[in-house]
Nucleic acid binder design. Structure first.
Lengths: 341, 341
DNA sequence: CTGAAAGCGCTAACAT
DNA sequence: ATGTTAGCGCTTTCAG
């Protein structure tokens, strides 16, 4: 039988209360008893039983990581990496993360995640856009909540975001520094805050570079930013704009489709058209040529939100923090100096 | 305050024991009381408190998913997908999975995962090769254990494996059906059971096709099966064997390196050399040409091991099962009929 | 600085 | 078929 706090108490000749205090690093315990208890703990290889502790203290040591099915499966490596980043950081903080996937059409009255209703978590991390209904429902549980890669309408929660605006600027700066003057933008779902911000960055950088923005050079009405939509966006773009020398794709997935179309049209990357993506997904590396992109530190995003959560859990909360995680230009082979023509 | 079993009992005018019995679908409860209790549960929106239940019943509703850092990070999407497969299946079975990453040099005496020592899991799933030391240490906890993608020395545990042998055969059959008679094999870490089995499949299929096996056509001494080692393996292979028309790489990662070398040597894929990998990783799709490969249903692997675990947990265990998950030939553009020469 | 004792919410054995 | 009751192992007042 695994030892309990009682066994430790007996062995150290103290009460179980004292053992509990030692475990929680209570300072009023004298050095000697503390040592004695710690020795007993070690000798017996004692570890408190999580469920018992949970019942008594209402702390479970678990956190929920909520992401919609859609997000998780469609841009799977992305949110998986955020999850893993949070997971790694959680381990430092002695937490476990319960991955909780919900439907993206969740609405009031739907069954809530089991780990929440059974109060098996101490806090909730939302990753990516989640339905407002589930946020409202979960607010009733009065658990600390934090958001990553999504900016909830109610602003009173800590949130970790990608610096999409800066990323968009960096992409365009890179291209304009290479001499490009006809820089297009392709995107899907321009309603999405992240994509909108990248678009803003695109426009501002264009302006900074003394280039004029033309709506004809922006394909922003694709349904969602996936490979196939990159292909069709590129098709439409090139049909109407023969003079494009560089394309900024709102993400790598679309960029892959764009590259495919360019190749099929007999356009060489980067000799004829430079192409840059956003996200730095693995597949970009295997492209021919390897894709220049804006690197998003996904693990970092997860780690950061976990740190915010830990702060809340330890009541170290200042005001709800907003963290913008910086992105980084990754130059590979799909971008090059504009051809002198 | 969230309702407890007491509140339900009061509202339904029964004892808490009755409520508990209803919750556990005990059949001796009369239809009427069952209805009454269920109504009270619904009205109050009652959910048992997991920690309390855990303390009383010693069941936590959690499972540990243990994988080494090495495996998880090196072939990250692979084990991530197994994890996700297990996770999806777990949800069907009302379990949560605690992802638990350990060092691959774990040895007796090292700190064990917290979720285990705190008895916060009901069972353990091992994914990929894990150090024997941790298996021994964890055996003391007498938790149900199951393995996926690794065949532990002690054979008394349920295990889920890829049908690597069949995969190796299928790859070679595919190539020989295309007329290839000089089919090479490249691998790293031939000690690894999975790779060894693929190699066996290669040899047997060769024999079946009436082709002779030559050790010169097998590069099996690379340190581990990664991209860079595929590159160097291909280099050595092509140096000594000018007549190779097809290469079976033990996995996609190496195949990517192989393809890179082939291209740099001015050899066209598949016109000059056909190339097939194993695993079906995403990157293979983005290669030019897209990589033919043997598809491994990673989600399925995870789901299968979770199902075995659920069976053990419900005492539905027959003898420890071994399941071989079938693989599937995926024909893409990197393999083609041999050139008539 | 330490101990006694009262729960936390639930399960399960035992009564009835 | 349902109720009574004794824990499960821990935290946390409150005394001393």
């Amino acid at each position: 039988m695994t030892p309990t706090i009682k066994d430790v108490a007996q062995k150290a000749k103290v009460s179980i209360a004292t053992v509990s205090l030692v475990i929680h690093n209570n300072e009023k315990i004298s050095y000697e008893t503390r040592m004695r208890v710690n020795k007993a703990i070690k000798d017996l290889n004692y570890h408190p039983f999580r469920s018992a502790r949970g019942l008594a203290s209402r702390k479970t040591g678990n956190l929920a990581f909520i992401v919609t099915e859609d997000h998780f499966l469609r841009s799977e490596p992305f949110y998986t990496h955020i999850f893993l980043g949070a997971e790694f950081e959680a381990r430092q903080n002695e937490y476990y993360i319960l991955l909780t996937i919900i439907r993206s059409d969740f609405k009031q009255g739907d069954r809530l995640p089991r780990c929440i209703v059974e109060r098996n978590v101490d806090g909730i991390i939302f990753a990516g856009k989640v339905p407002q209904d589930i946020i409202s429902c979960l607010e009733k549980y009065e658990l600390p909540m934090a958001f990553v890669d999504y900016y909830p309408p109610a602003e009173n929660y800590p949130v970790v975001l990608i610096d999409n605006f800066s990323g968009g600027m960096q992409a365009v700066q890179h291209l304009s520094a290479l001499g490009h003057r006809h820089i297009a933008f392709v995107a899907g779902d321009i309603q999405h805050p992240s994509i909108r911000d990248r678009f803003q960055g695109y426009k501002v950088a264009l302006e900074n570079a003394g280039l004029s923005y033309s709506s004809k050079m922006s394909i922003i009405d694709e349904a969602y930013p996936a490979r196939e939509n990159g292909y069709s966006a590129a098709k439409r773009l090139l049909r109407d704009n023969k003079n494009v020398t560089a394309i900024f794709s709102c993400n790598d997935a679309m960029a892959i489709g764009v590259m495919q179309f360019l190749k099929e049209s007999g356009l060489r990357v980067p000799e004829d058209v430079s192409l840059i993506g956003f996200d730095d997904v693995d597949a970009g590396l295997s492209l021919d040529p390897p894709l220049s992109t804006i690197g998003v530190p996904k693990l970092e995003l997860g780690g950061e939100v976990m740190r915010l959560m830990a702060d809340m859990l330890n009541n170290k909360v200042k005001s709800p923090k907003k963290v913008l995680v910086p992105v980084e230009l990754i130059k590979r082979k799909s971008t090059a100096e504009v051809k002198i023509s």
